[in-house]
Amino acid sequence: NQASVVANQLIPINTALTLVMMRSEVVTPVGIPAKDIPRLVSMQVNRAVPLGTTLMPDMVKGYA
Rank of each mutant, 00 (worst) to 15 (best):
N1T: 15
N1V: 15
Q2S: 14
Q2A: 10
S4V: 02
S4T: 04
S4F: 02
S4H: 01
S4E: 01
V5Y: 02
V5I: 07
V5G: 02
V6F: 02
V6P: 01
V6I: 11
V6C: 05
N8E: 11
N8G: 12
N8H: 14
N8P: 02
N8S: 13
Q9H: 06
Q9L: 10
L10M: 12
L10F: 12
L10D: 09
I11D: 00
I11Q: 01
I11V: 07
I11G: 01
I11W: 02
P12A: 12
I13L: 09
I13N: 10
N14V: 03
N14R: 07
A16M: 10
A16N: 05
A16G: 09
A16D: 06
L17R: 00
L17C: 02
T18L: 06
L19A: 06
V20P: 05
V20Q: 07
V20K: 13
V20W: 10
V20L: 14
V20A: 10
V20F: 14
M21C: 03
M21D: 03
M21Q: 04
M22Y: 02
R23K: 08
R23E: 03
R23C: 04
S24V: 09
S24I: 12
S24Q: 14
S24K: 06
E25F: 06
E25Y: 10
V26Y: 10
V26S: 10
V26R: 03
V26N: 11
V27F: 02
V27N: 03
V27M: 05
V27Q: 08
T28P: 01
T28C: 11
V30S: 12
V30Q: 12
V30W: 12
G31W: 02
A34N: 07
A34M: 11
A34R: 04
K35E: 15
K35P: 15
K35D: 15
I37G: 04
I37M: 11
P38Q: 10
R39I: 08
R39L: 14
R39P: 03
R39A: 09
L40S: 00
L40I: 13
L40N: 00
V41T: 07
V41F: 09
V41W: 04
S42H: 09
S42Q: 09
M43R: 06
M43W: 11
Q44C: 10
V45W: 00
V45G: 01
N46L: 15
N46P: 03
N46T: 12
R47T: 06
R47W: 15
R47F: 08
R47V: 07
A48N: 10
V49E: 01
V49R: 03
V49T: 06
P50N: 12
P50L: 07
L51E: 14
L51V: 13
G52W: 06
G52Y: 07
G52I: 02
T53W: 15
T53C: 14
T53Y: 15
T54L: 05
T54H: 02
L55E: 00
L55V: 09
L55R: 00
M56D: 05
M56G: 04
M56N: 07
M56H: 09
M56W: 06
P57F: 14
P57V: 07
P57G: 10
P57H: 10
P57L: 06
D58Q: 09
M59C: 12
V60M: 04
V60T: 01
V60D: 00
K61E: 07
K61F: 10
G62V: 04
G62R: 06
Y63D: 03
A64Y: 04
